[in-house]
Amino acid sequence: MSKKMKISYLINLIGVILLYLAMTFVFDNGVLGAKTTYITGIAIIAMMTIIIVCSLNLLTGYMGEFSLGHAGFMSTGAFSSAAVTIAMLEAHIALPTLLYFIIAILVGGLFSALMGFVVGIPALRLRGDYLAIVTVAFAEIVRVAFTNFPITGGGKTLSGIPKVSDYHYIFWVTVICVTLMYMYIRSRFGRAVIAIREDYIAAAASGINVTRYKVMTFVLSAFFAGVAGGIYSHYMTAIIPTFFNFMKSSEFLTMVILGGSGSLTGSIIGAAVLASLPEALRDFSIYRMLIYSVVLVIVMIFKPSGIFGTWEFSLPRIIFKLFGKKEAKGGAAK
């Protein structure tokens, strides 16, 4: 590891910590007055959306395959984690909230990853449109299943989930998730995945195991979507299967595409802005999807790669530029 890379990592770490301190300061001291709780809620939803949109970008932006069923992965994560923590509560297992939270998101992530594996297998033979429609079908199967299983509420709202998500934990989980995804993309695996997107036949010819990488990316993407689901259910405390519908999946895809497929920065900003916008402008919420769809068509016609394209934000790069040093490579997102 070169010295410059170490410095880059350090700068990123400091940046993240500063962001965290700023957020804690604002939320804990009630700088925003009476609206603090409300704004905190928006921030939590935004961070959760960031995780799921980034995970979808792994598939759409980097692997070039669609998932129109990401709400299904999120649903799997939300319900499986809720089922486990409710069972733990009923068994009177007294644990600190942090542990509860970690167990919840891990369970959610793992169950969802399992689902990702199951969906990843048809993905071996299918591409493009057909795969997109298979993911829709999958998300619908998940919805029907959770509507029928008694352990997931049997079609009614599943309530009584312990409220263990709070913004301190969620912030760090978001940071970790985004960093992991960023590292995955920048790694050997990530480059192989991008090669598959560009031309899978050429990738296979150069010795990349297309099958393995496709399934691996599906599993990873599903894992993070499941983590987001776990966060969601333990923040809302009551969830219903019909919430995770086709509309929700399309909304996530909209965020990925608008932000820029192939840019995690784009996903983060897209998710944060588009998730908090309807909350900020309540009267506008009915026109929200209408405007998104128009913007989506315009973006598709004029700049198909999305607003940020494949550009990534890098804090070290800016700092090195400011202080006149040579441009640094690497540096985590956010």
Partner: peptide, 11 residues
Amino acid sequence: ALITALAMSLF
């Protein structure tokens, strides 16, 4: 094409 179709559906 797929995204545009989806966007028109949402629209």
